[in-house]
């Protein structure tokens, strides 16, 4: 449920370094999609939008609740998952694959390793959600 190769935020986003090492991909975790229930809207910023680590960059809304999506790093939006406009339920069915949300081109590439080291690994994230 929490792939080993990903990093996780305490706000329930996952982070994967893309083929281009200056780009990270962001989505929400299995735990998050399960707690939200059926996702009906995902609001994501346009390509080129500057996002700041720790600040909301979009929203994910289900039949029963709405939650912010937080930027794990500072950078610019490189790509957004257009599929989610028509099929928001991909967030539920495939949160780590087709339900990805945005790619961010990292502003401070030198500091990326440190940023990622500050996130949770799969075991630590799982331990966190098991306590909730």
């Amino acid at each position: 449920m929490y792939p080993e190769e990903l990093s996780y935020t305490t706000e329930h986003e996952w982070v994967r370094v893309a083929d281009d090492p200056a780009v990270i991909r962001v989505g929400i975790t299995h735990y998050a999609q399960d707690a939200l229930g059926d996702v009906v809207y995902v609001s994501l910023p346009e390509i080129g939008t500057e996002v700041e680590a720790g600040q909301p960059l979009g929203e994910v809304e289900s039949t029963k609740s709405v939650s912010d999506i937080y930027a794990p790093v500072t950078g610019a939006v490189e790509a957004r998952n257009e599929e989610l406009d028509d099929q928001p339920d991909l967030v539920n069915s495939d949160p780590y694959g087709d339900g990805w949300m945005i790619d961010i081109r990292v502003a401070d590439l030198d500091g990326l390793d440190e940023t990622l080291a500050g996130l949770l690994d799969a075991a630590a994230y799982q331990a966190m959600v098991e306590k909730e």
Partner: peptide, 17 residues
């Protein structure tokens, strides 16, 4: 139990207590 996704959730369960 249903929890807000984060401490800074923009909204919570609409029809719940």
């Amino acid at each position: 139990m249903l929890v807000p996704i984060s401490g800074r959730a923009a909204g919570t369960v609409a029809f719940m207590d």
